[in-house]
């Protein structure tokens, strides 16, 4: 009897398990097709031989990675030296994306905080206002940005008419222009998660802190920030990661000198001049880098949680 009942019980859980798998199947298929398959394809392509008019020859080769990391001179016969060109592009991209993330945080945090502390009925209006520009195509927004920032553009005209400056400030084709462009491209990704976190925050905790003699600044640092940290981290990742691989803002606002990874990869797949395995290899390096950064973040986070607990 007992054994029968037990086996009956496990049969029930098995039924649920298989039903669950069956129900999850569409999600697995979609994830497989749209996430896993492209990554695996990229991985494979990065180890193939390039065909000169784009495309690949199905023959194993490490040439793409070799080209990325090493310099063997013009005829490939010198001893291998590290090739800094692409690593520098990566470094600059990381730096630019980091700066854009910090800029977004500096502007996005107060914005999100402001919205989340408005009356409940007007919050959706503010959120809507923030998202309005993003109904317009990114390319058009970036071009408009270029128009705004150029030497004869409205910004410089305005500054000159106020007498603040005598000659136009050159913003276009600088690092700062790229950072501004990235900041503007991804600002809502910073604002929205922080907004959600602040909205969930229970403000009676700030009152409790003030009641216990904490000034506004200390309350923000010791009570509010720890509570909304997950939102801030999510916002930073959501801005940093796409900024890192972005090519519109660097191309249009940064000019040739401020080339970023996104542009490098884009070029490899464009027209006939490209090098697909090299583009795929650069993508794999980028992907690994993002994964490593995220993993370090997650590790630190769980360490901090453990230390607190």
């Amino acid at each position: 009897m007992a054994a029968g009942a037990a086996s009956g019980g496990s049969a029930t859980t098995d039924t649920y398990a298989s039903a669950r798998n069956l129900l999850l199947l569409p999600s697995w298929v979609i994830l497989g097709i749209f996430v896993l398959a492209p990554v695996i394809m990229m991985l494979i392509y990065s180890f193939l031989t390039k065909e000169f008019r784009g495309g690949v020859i199905w023959q194993f080769s490490l040439a793409a990675y070799d080209q990325f990391f090493f310099d063997r001179g013009l005829f490939g016969d010198e001893p291998a030296k590290i090739e800094w060109t692409y690593i520098n592009i990566f470094w600059r991209s990381t730096w630019q994306a980091g700066a854009a993330t910090i800029l977004s945080l500096l502007i996005g945090f107060p914005t999100a905080y402001f919205i989340a502390t408005r009356e409940e009925s007007v919050r959706p209006i503010w959120v809507f206002l923030i998202t309005i520009p993003y109904w317009v195509n990114l390319l058009i927004r970036t071009v408009s940005m270029k128009f705004l920032l150029r030497d004869e553009g409205p910004l410089n005209d305005f500054l000159m008419s106020t007498g603040l400056i005598d000659s136009p400030i050159h913003i276009i084709n600088t690092n700062f222009a790229v950072q501004l462009g990235l900041f503007y491209s991804y600002l809502p990704f910073m604002v929205l998660p922080i907004y959600a976190a602040v909205e969930r925050y229970n403000f009676s905790m700030s009152e409790a802190a003030a009641d216990l003699y904490a000034s506004k600044w200390v309350t923000l640092r010791r009570i509010v920030l720890p509570a909304i940290k997950p939102g801030v981290i999510a916002g930073c990742i959501l801005v940093f990661v796409p900024s890192l691989g972005s090519f519109l803002a660097p191309d249009l606002l940064g000019g040739a000198k401020n080339f970023m990874i996104g542009s490098l990869i884009e070029e490899q797949f464009k027209g006939n001049a490209g090098n697909w395995p090299f583009g795929a290899a650069a993508s794999m390096v980028l992907l690994s880098m993002v994964l490593i950064i995220l993993m370090i973040f997650a590790r630190q986070q769980s360490k901090a949680d453990k230390a607190e607990g």
């Binding site: 229970n202 009676s204 905790m205 009152e207 409790a208 802190a209 003030a210 009641d211 216990l212 003699y213 904490a214 000034s215 010791r222 009570i223 720890p226 509570a227 607190e308």
Partner: peptide, 30 residues
Amino acid sequence: LPPHQRPVNTVFQNYALFPHMTILENVAFG
């Protein structure tokens, strides 16, 4: 006077304990 300058403390109806701090850290905060 702002609340943090009043030598008056409150036990809140919903307690308003700081969730990321231990009990000891909560009590030590003030």
